[in-house]
Computed example of a mutant assay.
Amino acid sequence: MNYHDLLARLGEGSAHPGGFMATMQLVERYPLPQGSRVLEIGCGTGRTSCHLARCGYQVTAVDSNESMLKRAERRIAREEAKVKLVRGDAEQLPFPDGIFDLVFVESVSIFTDARSALAEYRRVLKPGGTLLDRELTVSKESTALMKGAMRQLYGMRTMADEQGWLEMMRLAGFTHYSSEDVRPEIMVTLDDVDPNREVDPTLFFDEAAFYLGQMNARILERYRTKLGSAVFVARA
C-alpha cells in the first residue's frame, strides 16, 4: 500500500492544505463564464470535480489511480454531477492542444516530474487560459533527510520553494505567472463533513494503513515549519 492507496481507501476528497474550504474559496476567487471547459488534474475521489460541475462548468477529471477513479465514478453518480472521468497521466495528458479554459490542480504536481507536467498543462490550455495550481513548498534550508522522508513516504518527485515553482512555470511557456496565498508553514486542516465520503471499513484493521497514518502524522509534525504552500496562477 502507498500513500495514494491509503487516501483512496479513506475516501479523502481534499488532501491538500486548507482542505475543501480552501478549494471553494479558490473557485469563487476565479469565476469563469457558464459552460467553460475545466480540467481537474488528479481528481481523486471526485469531490472538487463535482463542485466545479455544480458551478456550471463542463468538467473533465483525470487521475492515474484506478481505485480513486472508481470512487469518483460512484460519487459522481450519487451527486448526479456532469463530469467526464478519464484515466491518464499528468505528464502525458490524453487530450489535444488548446481545448480547456482552466486547468485546476491541488497538491498533484509535487508527485510528478513537474517540468513535464506543467508543460502539459500549458499545452492543453486555450490561448489566454488559466492554470490554478495549489502546491506544497519547501524552505531553501530544507535538509536532504527531510526531502528523502517526503519522497519515501509520499512518493513526491518535485519539491521546490515558491520561486522554484514560478521558474518552472516560466520554462513551461506560461507568459504570466504569480503566487498568492503563500503560507510559510503547512496548514494541517481537519476535513469538513463530506456526506458522500466512501470509507473502506477494513482499513481500520490493516496494519500497513495504520503504519502509514502514524508516519504521516510524525512527518507533518516534525517538518511542518519547513513545509508551506502557495497557489500559483499562470496564463497560457
Rank of each mutant, 00 (worst) to 15 (best):
G88R: 02
M156T: 14
V108A: 15
V231E: 04
D191F: 08
M146Y: 06
V62M: 00
T175A: 13
V233N: 04
D5R: 12
R222F: 07
A149H: 15
I110T: 14
E80W: 10
H51L: 11
A8H: 04
D97Q: 10
A53I: 04
R151H: 14
S142Y: 03
L69F: 08
E79M: 10
G128N: 07
L190M: 12
R87Y: 02
A90K: 04
P184R: 11
V231D: 11
S107D: 11
G155L: 10
L203V: 12
L203S: 10
D101F: 03
A8V: 10
H16I: 10
L227E: 03
E40Q: 11
C50L: 02
R170E: 14
I110S: 13
V182R: 13
R224M: 06
R170I: 00
L227R: 06
Y223K: 09
N2H: 11
R29V: 00
A172F: 04
V193S: 08
R235Y: 05
E162V: 15
V103K: 03
V27W: 00
I219M: 15
S14I: 00
Y154T: 06
E120N: 02
E135S: 09
D194A: 09
G228C: 10
T60V: 15
A217R: 15
G213L: 13
D113V: 05
G42P: 01
L69C: 05
G213A: 07
L26A: 13
E106L: 08
T45Q: 05
A15H: 09
D63N: 11
L220E: 12
L6G: 04
G128L: 05
F111R: 02
F232C: 02
T175Q: 14
V138R: 03
R197P: 05
G128Y: 04
F174T: 05
M156W: 10
Y57V: 01
A81V: 05
Q163K: 13
Q92T: 12
T158Q: 03
D113I: 00
F111S: 07
Q92S: 15
G98N: 11
R123V: 03
L190T: 14
Q58N: 13
R122A: 15
D181E: 15
E106D: 12
D192Q: 09
P96M: 05
G13I: 06
S179E: 07
L26Y: 00
L85Q: 08
L190G: 07
K140A: 14
E180Y: 04
A230C: 12
A117C: 11
V108P: 00
F205K: 15
K226C: 13
A144V: 09
E135N: 13
Q214M: 11
R134P: 06
E167F: 04
Q58I: 03
P184T: 09
M146K: 12
A119M: 07
G88D: 03
Q34M: 11
E180I: 09
G164P: 00
K140G: 11
A90D: 04
A236C: 12
K226I: 01
A77V: 13
A149Q: 15
A144T: 07
E73R: 15
G19L: 03
D101A: 10
L52V: 07
R151T: 14
A61K: 02
M169N: 03
V62A: 01
A149D: 15
V27T: 02
K147H: 08
L132T: 08
E207C: 01
K147V: 07
S36W: 06
H51M: 07
D206C: 14
V199C: 08
D101Q: 09
T23P: 01
D89Y: 00
T225W: 00
T60E: 00
Y223M: 09
A160S: 11
G164C: 01
V103H: 02
